[in-house]
């Protein structure tokens, strides 16, 4: 009798985890398509570079002050589309800058493909091995704060090599975050697909922007 109850509880947990993963990836796919649309629109409208800053600021306000209050309701989905739409819009000026380089389309396509390969490989690794990466939370959070502080300093120093080192570190950190966030869905720590989607989206966004920077440097343009 007790065995049956335990077995039912285990089954319910597995079903809940599978549902969380399925919903997260479905919403993530939709938001990625949506932000691709807003980014394309932003490129065609030739929005000024300031758009990047304003969109990022707007997305952060939504993420920190609106999303926590709406994450458990259906309006949370609308907020997620607002965040990802804004971030896509902000990417426009950056993409326009890279696309204007002699081999710009190649750089953008490689960054996009590279981000996709890293995302699928690491998510697949975390999901199939079912390793628990929850122990990395503190390490990744500290690393991200250090990177932010370094970026803040480099705004005023403007050292290109330092900026490149920051981008390389962000790629490594975001790869770690991909493992951590996927592991949190599998092993507990994240049971809300709206919040899980925003976390994964931000990771992919940062990964793409940093990869774009590194590839732009490597192309000598």
């Amino acid at each position: 009798m007790q065995g049956n109850t335990v077995s039912t509880q285990v089954e319910a947990k597995i079903l809940a985890t599978n549902k969380l993963i399925r919903n997260t990836y479905m919403l993530l796919a939709m938001t990625l398509v949506f932000s691709a649309v807003t980014a394309t629109l932003s490129v065609f409208l030739r929005l000024p570079p300031m758009t990047y800053l304003l969109s990022l600021g707007g997305a952060i306000v939504l993420m920190w002050f609106v999303l926590p209050r709406t994450a458990n309701s259906t309006s949370g989905i609308g907020v997620v589309f607002g965040i990802t739409g804004l971030l896509g819009l902000g990417l426009g000026p950056l993409l326009s800058m890279y696309l204007s380089l002699p081999n710009g389309p190649q750089i953008v396509a490689t960054a996009l493909g590279g981000t996709g390969v890293i995302f699928f490989a690491l998510s697949g690794y975390a999901l199939t091995t079912r390793r628990n990466f929850n122990f990395m939370g503190g390490f990744l959070a500290t690393g991200f704060l250090v990177v932010l502080a370094a970026s803040l300093v480099n705004i005023f120093l403007g050292i290109p090599a330092f900026s490149l080192a920051i981008s390389a570190t962000v790629v490594m950190l975001m790869s770690g975050f991909l493992l951590y966030e996927t592991s949190q869905m599998v092993h507990g720590g994240q049971d809300n697909y709206v919040l899980a989607t925003v976390g994964l989206y931000m990771t992919i966004f940062n990964l793409f922007v940093s990869l774009l920077h590194l590839l732009g440097f490597a192309s000598n343009d």
């Binding site: 081999n103 590279g114 690491l122 990395m136 790629v171 490594m172 770690g176």
Partner: peptide, 19 residues
């Protein structure tokens, strides 16, 4: 954790050389 991260680093270096 370190093995997949090292592979990502190698992959990024490869992309940087290919571009």
């Amino acid at each position: 954790f370190l093995v997949p991260i090292a592979l990502v680093a190698a992959f990024v270096l490869l992309l940087m050389n290919l571009i």
